[in-house]
Amino acid sequence: MGFSMSQSEKPGGLNRRSFLTATAMGATLPVIQQARAQQAESAPADPRAPVDVKLRINGRDQSLRLDARTTLLDTLREHVGLTGSKKGCDQGQCGACTVLVDGTRVLSCLTLAVMAQGSEITTIEGLASSDGALHPMQQAFIDHDAFQCGYCTPGQIMSAVACVNEGHAGTNDDIREYMSGNLCRCAAYPNIVAAINQAKNEMRKA
């Protein structure tokens, strides 16, 4: 496959023209065209140029222009104004940034916003009902005093909601194992387990 020409024209950098030229010489042209036609986040030639990113966050569509480096966490906090998701370690070790992407709990600090394009994102701000009634998990955390400083709490609650929905909250051991990705330096762990045990029953009724 003849990539050498386009590569030598622009060593070390991929621009849109050379990409298309190169792929046009390849055997899998239809695949490439299909891939590129489907992607709204196609890369500009300048890696610092902003990219258009469309996200659906807590039921609202957001159209953003972002540096491709922007994590989902920084997007939420710095660009959308949703500061509930917390930045603890920013390297996938503490769980404070946990959000739901298409109902699945993930770490927003290790997710690029551009990779979440087209997904439904739920943050702590999106849990309560529109009438302001707290989600059963939020209420349970209050009822059981399941926090002290509160910094890890949004991540704990988002993770706990997913833990119940996954069916991983059957026993205290299960809860501890499946909540192990959320650290609490205040060590509110026993109260967190109690809160999840309360909320899982409420969530089942709902």
């Binding site: 990409f19 899998t28 490439i32 890696p47």
Partner: peptide, 11 residues
Amino acid sequence: PFLYERADQPE
């Protein structure tokens, strides 16, 4: 900084 591409097919 980096360029970002998304592939929908392995090829």
